[in-house]
């Protein structure tokens, strides 16, 4: 095994081009587990901790440019207003120690169906900026996940930034674990209101081979909110609409039975989370979250 320590982004790209099988390591929260347990013996380990831009973020007019290695704890502390869904999800990742190391870039690189950051990226709207010595491209996050632990990166590419749309309405994230902390998701769910476009987005983790948007549920709910004129009213989402939205989210799942939970439970739980998180975001929208980039977590002390 060889240890590569590129000191700059350009060096990192060059090293990756030279050794396409090199495994990038930033927080190490996935890679080191595989090394410690003899599940992986890459020819090259490439440390990205020395590449400064990967640890920085920049808030623009409409979006946040998030360095791939920005740890979850920084997101929780600094980006709650701009990226409330992601900040909530960040808070559910592993433990405080893991949140100090793990990052969205790492989550995307591992492309686990259970990655906690994936649903809020899908509901906020995000693009993954991948780069190689050949050049740079932006991959919509919907197209990024190509299979279980597989992603759209070419072998010489590295993730540099994730461009995430700033919230224009309330966002929520919820995840099922069989323990009250430090747990991998049995399944996860995110919902985001986009009042400016009168759209709702919903996304699910760990209930299919890849994280996915429940588009049918999104379409149904967006249409229902429009038809009932709810965006401009002060009314709640009718229970029948919330119920149908939840059913459609459940129906979109293609889960499996595994040690963490049954397929039937995952489908069921996604429905419950969909209904509850919709209630929370709508409640905060009614309470003044409309139109603004307000971070509302349903009044919850959780991010």
């Amino acid at each position: 095994m060889e240890f590569l320590r590129p000191a700059s982004w350009q060096e990192a790209l060059a090293a990756k081009a030279e050794h396409p099988s090199a495994v990038p390591i930033a927080g190490g929260t996935d890679v080191m587990v595989e090394i410690n347990f003899d599940q992986r013996r890459p020819g090259w380990l490439m440390d990205l901790n020395r590449v400064p831009e990967l640890h920085e973020w920049e808030t623009g007019e409409d979006s946040v440019r998030l360095g791939a290695s920005v740890p979850y704890s920084r997101i929780m502390e600094n980006l709650r207003a701009e990226l409330p869904g992601l900040a909530l999800a960040a808070h559910t990742v592993g433990s405080p120690q893991i949140r100090n190391r793990g990052s969205v870039g790492g989550n995307l690189g591992a492309a686990s169906p259970a990655g906690d950051s994936h649903p809020p990226l899908l509901t906020a709207g995000a693009e993954v900026e991948a780069e190689s010595v050949r050049g740079s491209r932006r991959i919509p996050v919907e197209e990024f996940f190509t299979g279980v632990k597989r992603n759209a990166l070419a072998e010489d590419e590295l993730i540099k930034y994730v461009h995430i749309k700033k919230a224009t309405g309330p966002q929520q994230f919820s995840k099922i674990g069989t323990r009250n902390a430090m747990v991998i998701a049995v399944c996860g769910f995110s919902v985001a209101l986009h009042p400016e476009s009168r759209r709702v987005r919903a996304a699910v983790a760990s209930a299919a081979p890849t994280p996915f948007r429940a588009t049918e549920a999104e379409d149904f709910l967006s249409a229902a909110l429009d038809e009932e004129g709810l965006w401009d009213s002060d009314r709640i989402v009718p229970p029948s609409v919330a119920r149908r939205f939840a059913e459609l989210c459940s129906a979109a799942c293609k889960p499996i039975d595994d040690v963490r939970g049954s397929a039937a439970y995952r489908r069921h739980a996604v429905g419950v989370m969909a209904r509850r998180t919709l209630t929370w975001v709508w409640e905060s929208y009614r309470n003044g979250g409309r139109g603004g980039a307000r971070n509302d977590e349903g009044g919850t002390r959780c991010a």
Partner: peptide, 19 residues
Amino acid sequence: AGTGVDVRALPGGLSNTTH
């Protein structure tokens, strides 16, 4: 802000599954 729901004292804990 808000109603002071502390998810740490609820089933699901930090995973934010119920208020």
